[in-house]
Design a protein around this nucleic acid. Sequence first.
DNA 1: ACGATGATTGTTCGC
DNA 2: GCGAACAATCATCGT
Length: 163
Amino acid sequence: MAKEAKHSLKSRSSKPTERPPNQRMVLRVRTIEGNKRLASLSSSSINNEETTVKKAKTKQKKKNKSKNFDAKKPKKPPTAFFYFLEDFRKEFQKQNPGVKSMRDIGKACGEKWKTMTYEEKVQYYDIATEKRAEFDRATAEYIKRKESGEDEETEDDDSEFDE
DNA sequence: ACGATGATTGTTCGC
DNA sequence: GCGAACAATCATCGT
């Protein structure tokens, strides 16, 4: 009974769409990723390789996988869009069995996302916000632990018998 | 076979 | 304020 009528705002259909998605919820916590990026930026800053600014349109993704199992490092929580995607994906695949993958879905999802009203999206925003709060705490705790002394390292290698 | 990428938007942070 | 980057996910391409 605690979670009913989350939005007390009555949909008056006045202007539900025009609403800033981000309410400027500034997280005071220094995100680890930010730090990482800073290092990267510094390196790039020093070296001006290309005089002509080569702007990479979409270049996300990095090759960090099995190398470092970041069980301690809280990754960025998925945004509202991602939560919507998760739900949308299932339905999309159900309606379109045999569809390739996210890329196709992503396009359809993005299109629909824009058509969604604020009230519809606010639900996902809410989730994302809570997630961010948790992420915030996780980050703070991570830093705290790190400062405290991260020495929890039990390297269990099977073959330590014979070398 | 594995690695990297591509596509979607949102959020975050530095300058 | 903007730009650059990264969050999940999976098919597909590349080596």
